[in-house]
């Protein structure tokens, strides 16, 4: 590095420099987080910056995408229109709201439930055998089929869908937490805590729980990504969010008959879906490398 460059580097404000170093060492975290933040912002702003997603307009059916005057607020065919003349741009942005909400809810729910079960199973040996057999069984049921069955049975809405996607994800968290607990409880500081007479509950919360945080954050991002994919898959199959709500899975399912003539109907929601899942996956990979180097080497 030349002297001038070094001087310039040193002249930069401290925080910015720290961020620069962080970004250079953890490019995947930064790329994933920026991409995700961008999509979240668009999703949150969707009702303000787009047309109503359900507004049909038979006059402009199946219009191809037109990127000219992109920022004209009256424009309806930025990403083209569908067979009912609905604005694909508006629908894609609104679809992001459902996907992100499902992903986030499932990640939080599955992590919390799995953490509770995993802590108990790992710490109390008597519970362990029963719980783990249960989890083995639950894990052998393909998650999409389990969710299909739950949705087909109850025909519920979004909440039921979230529960249906959460249930098959729980065993993965339980296994992870249990593995951490089993390793931690052999450590000397747990013996020390037991010998000074700490109660089990206190040991679990004070000594075991903190050790699970890092791997759980990583796992939660992967669960978020997989939940978004499963939600889209279920909506696509007609077992997800009711068809009148604009989700990426629903949009693609409804475009199946027209896609040879109008590929943009599938391209835009599909690309958005891939982009969000990619952002979450990159974030997860980066966090894993940073928080859990041992796991990073194994994967």
């Amino acid at each position: 590095m030349s002297e001038a460059a070094i001087a310039a580097e040193e002249a930069r404000p401290g925080r910015l420099k720290a961020f620069g170093t962080f970004a250079r060492r953890n490019p995947t975290i930064v790329i994933g987080a920026v991409l995700l933040a961008f999509m979240v912002t668009l999703a949150l702003l969707a009702p303000l910056i787009t047309n109503p997603p359900m507004q049909a307009s038979p006059a402009d059916r199946l219009k191809p995408p037109d990127f000219s005057n992109f920022f004209d607020p009256e424009k309806r065919d930025r990403f083209g229109t569908d067979n009912l003349g609905r604005d694909i741009f508006a629908r894609t942005l609104h679809g992001a709201r459902v996907s992100l909400m499902v992903g986030l809810s499932v990640a939080i729910l599955a992590t919390v439930i799995g953490l509770a079960i995993g802590l108990v199973a790992g710490y109390y040996r008597r519970v362990d055998a029963v719980v783990m057999r249960l989890m083995d069984g639950l894990m052998s049921i393909p998650s999409i089929l389990l969710a299909i069955a739950l949705v087909a049975l109850t025909r519920g809405g979004l909440l039921l869908l979230i529960i249906a996607i959460t249930i098959p994800e729980v065993p993965r968290v339980v296994r992870l937490v249990r593995a951490v607990v089993l390793a931690v409880r052999e450590r000397p500081f747990v013996d020390a805590a037991i010998s000074v007479g700490s109660r089990s509950r206190k040991i679990i919360i004070r000594h075991v729980l903190p050790m699970t945080v890092a791997p759980l954050i990583v796992q939660a991002t992967y669960i978020c990504a997989s939940a978004i994919l499963i939600e889209a898959g279920l909506s696509f199959l007609g077992a997800g969010v009711p068809p009148e709500i604009a989700t990426w899975g629903n949009m693609i399912a409804q475009s199946r008959l027209f896609f040879a003539r109008a590929p943009w109907l599938i391209f835009f929601p599909g690309a958005a879906l891939a982009l969000v899942v990619l952002a979450v996956n990159l974030l997860g990979d980066g966090l894993r490398d940073r928080l859990d180097p041992r796991l990073a080497r194994r994967m």
Binding site: G233, I266, G270, L273, L278
Partner: peptide
């Protein structure tokens, strides 16, 4: 590999159909 994890089956499917079959 990261991309392969992120693109859903049905999106890949339709892209393939569009390019190679249609």
């Amino acid at each position: 590999a990261v991309l392969g994890f992120s693109v859903p089956v049905f999106v890949v499917g339709y892209v393939l159909i569009f390019v190679f079959a249609i």
